[in-house]
Computed example of a mutant assay.
Amino acid sequence: MTSMDPKSIMDTEAPKSLPSTGDYSAPYVIDRAGGNPTEAGFQPEAMSHIPNHGQQLLDRFYAEHGPCCAGCDWWQRTNSLVGECRKSAPVSGADRFAMLGIRVTSLTPDAGHIMTPREHHCGEFKDEFDWDSLPFAYLRKIGHKAAKP
């Protein structure tokens, strides 16, 4: 069995252009919250404002339901259903998942921010994201109010 040099993996050449089909879904995407490419083949200058599929689900949910954790600047998603409220102070591991209805776990989670479902809404909601920085086609796709006539 031969081992690969990690540097040789990182030096693989990325595609020179985007797909011509107009399909800009994963893997040629960047997460607007984290700013990290989801795969080595993306081109930052062309794709820096198109969220990945998980973020797209949350953006669509927010556009349909209004103010909620899915659209809050304080909220950092774990997946498309739950995430951490970074506005809250860290709590003990036993208290982190209480808002998700989880009362008993086989292992106590680490302390951290409270986990909330995407539909939760509290008085600390904040949305200062510049939605106009996203392509009009994306806003129309998620049903955002800026794309409606």
Rank of each mutant, 00 (worst) to 15 (best):
1 M>A: 15
1 M>E: 14
4 M>S: 07
5 D>R: 10
7 K>I: 09
16 K>D: 14
18 L>Q: 06
19 P>N: 14
21 T>V: 02
23 D>Q: 03
23 D>G: 00
23 D>P: 00
24 Y>F: 15
24 Y>R: 08
25 S>T: 12
25 S>D: 11
28 Y>V: 12
28 Y>E: 01
28 Y>C: 07
30 I>Q: 08
31 D>K: 02
34 G>F: 11
36 N>V: 15
38 T>H: 10
39 E>S: 13
40 A>F: 06
41 G>V: 05
43 Q>C: 09
45 E>W: 09
46 A>D: 11
47 M>I: 05
49 H>A: 09
49 H>G: 01
49 H>E: 10
50 I>R: 06
52 N>K: 01
52 N>Q: 01
53 H>T: 09
54 G>R: 08
58 L>I: 07
59 D>T: 03
61 F>R: 02
65 H>W: 07
75 W>F: 15
76 Q>M: 11
77 R>V: 05
77 R>I: 05
77 R>F: 12
78 T>Q: 13
78 T>I: 14
78 T>V: 12
79 N>P: 02
79 N>V: 07
82 V>P: 00
84 E>W: 06
86 R>D: 01
88 S>R: 13
90 P>V: 13
90 P>R: 11
91 V>W: 03
91 V>Q: 08
92 S>I: 05
92 S>R: 14
95 D>Y: 02
96 R>Y: 00
98 A>Y: 07
99 M>N: 11
100 L>A: 15
108 T>Y: 00
111 A>D: 15
114 I>V: 15
115 M>H: 07
116 T>V: 15
118 R>S: 03
121 H>S: 15
122 C>V: 03
123 G>M: 04
123 G>L: 04
125 F>K: 00
125 F>C: 02
126 K>P: 00
128 E>P: 00
129 F>V: 10
131 W>E: 09
135 P>Y: 02
136 F>N: 05
138 Y>P: 01
140 R>M: 06
141 K>V: 02
142 I>E: 01
146 A>N: 12
146 A>C: 03
148 K>N: 05
148 K>R: 13
